[in-house]
Amino acid sequence: MSIRTTPRLRIWDLPTRLFHWLLALCTTALIVTAQIGGNAMEWHLRLGHAVLALLLFRIIWGFSGGYWSRFTTFIPSPARLVRYLQGQGTPADNAGHNPLGALSVIAMLLILGMQVGTGLVSDDEIAFAGSLVRYVSGDTIAWASVWHKGWGQWLVYAILGLHIVALVFYRIVKRKPLVAAMLHGDKLNQPQDLPPSRDGWAAVLPAFFFAAACAVMAYWVWTRATF
C-alpha cells in the first residue's frame, strides 16, 4: 500500500533559516578573527555578542517557532532514539532533524553557548577582556580564559566538522540535500499527514520582536564593559 505524499512540505520557517545562516556566518567570522588576533579581536568581541543574541533567540524560538523548529518536536526521547538506531524510524523522524541530528544540534548550541559565556568573562591581559569580567572572581576569569582558548575552541571545531561531514554524507550517500532545505525551507515528497511549519507573517512578526529583544539584551551585556 503506497503512502500518499505532498510535493513540498514546509519544514524550516524563515526565522529558523535566517538564524541558521547568520549563526554559520558569525561563527566562521569568530574563528577567523580569533586566529588573526590583534585589532581583529575587537570584531571578535562584537561577533560574540551577536552570537549571544542569536542563541537567546533560538532558545525562545525553540518554544514558539514553527512545528519542526520546536524542542518538543525534535529532541528525541530515549525510546525514539533507540528505535531510530535500530532502523525503525518513522517518517516524522526524518522530516525535520532526525534523532541523531537533533542531538548534534543541541550539542552545538550548548558548546557555542559555553564558548560565548566563557568569552564574556575571559581576559588575555593583553588586548581582550570580556564584557562581564568585572563581575566575577580572578579564579573564574583564569578558568574561563583557559577553557575559551583551549578545550572550548577545539569542541567548536569538532562539532562544526561533524556537522559538515554529516551534510556531505547525506548529500552523497543518502541523496538528501539538507542544505537546500535550509535555504528554501521545504522538503520534497513527505507524507501528507505530517504538519507543515507555520511560516509567512504569522512567523516573521513574532520572530522580529523576539529577535529585537534578544539584540537589546546582548547589547546591554556589551555595555557592561563600559559602564
Rank of each mutant, 00 (worst) to 15 (best):
H163V: 05
G89N: 07
S104C: 10
A207C: 01
D124W: 01
F63W: 07
R46H: 12
K174S: 11
G200L: 09
A34P: 04
R134K: 13
A213T: 12
S122K: 00
G87K: 03
N189W: 09
P7A: 13
G150A: 06
L23H: 01
L162D: 04
R58P: 00
A102I: 15
N94M: 05
T118C: 12
P177F: 03
L85K: 08
I141A: 00
Y84Q: 00
I111T: 00
D186M: 12
P99R: 04
L54E: 04
P91W: 02
P15E: 00
N98E: 07
P78F: 08
R224E: 04
F210W: 14
M217Y: 13
I126N: 04
P177K: 03
D199R: 01
D186V: 15
L160M: 14
N94A: 14
A215C: 10
R171D: 11
Y219W: 15
W43A: 10
L167D: 01
I75A: 10
R224Y: 12
S197Y: 07
D123A: 05
R4C: 08
R80T: 03
A53C: 11
W151K: 09
R8C: 09
I75R: 00
P91S: 02
A129T: 15
L81Y: 08
P15W: 02
L194P: 03
R8Q: 11
L178Q: 13
D123S: 07
M114P: 03
A212H: 05
A142Q: 07
T118S: 13
R198I: 12
P206A: 07
A79K: 13
L162H: 04
A215E: 07
F71D: 14
I111C: 00
I111A: 01
L14R: 05
D199V: 03
T16D: 05
G96R: 03
R10C: 13
V51Y: 00
I111G: 01
R171W: 15
T6K: 11
A218L: 02
N98C: 08
I11H: 09
V133G: 07
H148Q: 09
F57T: 04
L155H: 02
P195M: 09
S104V: 15
L162C: 12
V32E: 03
L22V: 04
H184L: 12
I126F: 07
M217F: 15
V168Q: 06
A166H: 03
T226G: 13
A211S: 10
G117F: 06
W151P: 01
T28N: 01
P195K: 05
I164N: 02
F169H: 13
Y219E: 12
A129V: 14
G62Y: 02
P78C: 12
W201T: 06
A142Y: 11
M182A: 10
A34I: 09
S197T: 13
Q153W: 11
L109Q: 06
V51L: 02
K176Y: 04
V32N: 05
A215P: 04
D124M: 00
T140V: 15
L188V: 12
R8E: 14
R80P: 06
